[in-house]
């Protein structure tokens, strides 16, 4: 959360990503301001999920992953050798495509991020669990059954639990990889309202297949196609007056 307008929250400089010989991202650069929602759209296989996972280095686990270029968060190069990837992930939370709560209680799901940091004080955990669940607008629904298995919740509740779980470690950036694609319309709109709320305190990057969703929740939108960032700009501008023909074709549904 930087107030300094001159320095961007996130900066990507000339990123190229390869899986083996396959080049999946081609010379992508981008600046993202703090406390904004940025959506990445594009057809399947365009590299947008890979791009999202650059920010918390989740691609590192893929065997033949290789990248050129740099990613900066708050001015720090997150691929620097001095950066501990576990520390990085405490500042960059992630919500996945399918809700993936741990097979533990609701309470333990939220507390997990703190427990792995060695924080086990009960009253502190209680406080964080309540605060995180309130932020994710789930508290009122689950406050009496925190000892229940997280997997007994509905899909939409599970996804909000996953958001609360990510918030509990107090990140400043949240990555969302198609967070509503497995949910029904009502749950989806709840997630979207939540994103709008969270924007006040967090910088949010969201990958989505749903262009209406991108239009509703985001300030900026980037359109990816075959590994290239074709167009990046204000969401309203990009949807009403795209400067690139391929962007226009995609958002009007002519392909993708």
């Amino acid at each position: 959360m930087k107030d300094n307008k001159n320095s961007y929250k996130l900066q990507v400089k000339n990123i190229n990503v390869y899986y083996g010989h396959n080049k999946v991202l081609k010379n992508v650069s981008m600046h993202i301001e703090a406390n904004t929602v940025t959506a990445f759209i594009g057809p399947s296989g365009c590299g947008k999920s890979t791009y999202l996972r650059l920010f918390n280095r989740m691609n590192d686990y893929i065997g033949n992953f290789r990248k050129e270029g740099d990613v900066f968060i708050d001015g720090r190069n997150i691929y620097d050798k001095k950066i501990e990837v576990e520390e990085l992930r405490k500042t960059v939370g992630m919500v996945f495509q399918k809700p993936n709560p741990f097979p533990k209680t609701i309470y333990e799901n939220i507390a997990y991020g703190l427990r792995i940091q060695g924080i086990n004080k009960k009253n502190l955990l209680d406080e964080v669990v309540e605060h995180s669940l309130k932020q994710a607008v789930l508290w009122d629904e689950v406050k009496d059954e925190l000892k229940k298995s997280a997997l007994e919740l509905s899909g939409g509740q599970q996804q909000r639990l996953c958001i609360a779980r990510a918030l509990a470690v107090e990140p400043s950036v949240i990555l969302m990889d198609e967070p509503a694609s497995a949910l029904d319309p009502i749950s989806t709109s709840k997630i979207e309202e939540l994103i709008f709320e969270l924007k006040k305190n967090y910088t949010i990057l969201i990958v989505t297949h749903n262009m209406h969703q991108a239009g509703r929740v985001s300030d900026k939108t980037g359109f990816f196609y075959l590994g290239e960032l074709i167009e990046f700009g204000d969401t309203k501008e990009l949807f009403t007056n795209p400067s690139n023909e391929r962007t226009e074709n995609y958002i009007t549904g002519r392909f993708g």
Binding site: N56, Y61, E86, L88, R89, N100, A166
Partner: peptide, 13 residues
């Protein structure tokens, strides 16, 4: 795999 990913994403070793 999704459980492991969730754990790593929270900063777990």
């Amino acid at each position: 795999k999704t459980i492991k990913e969730a754990s790593y994403a929270l900063g777990a070793t």
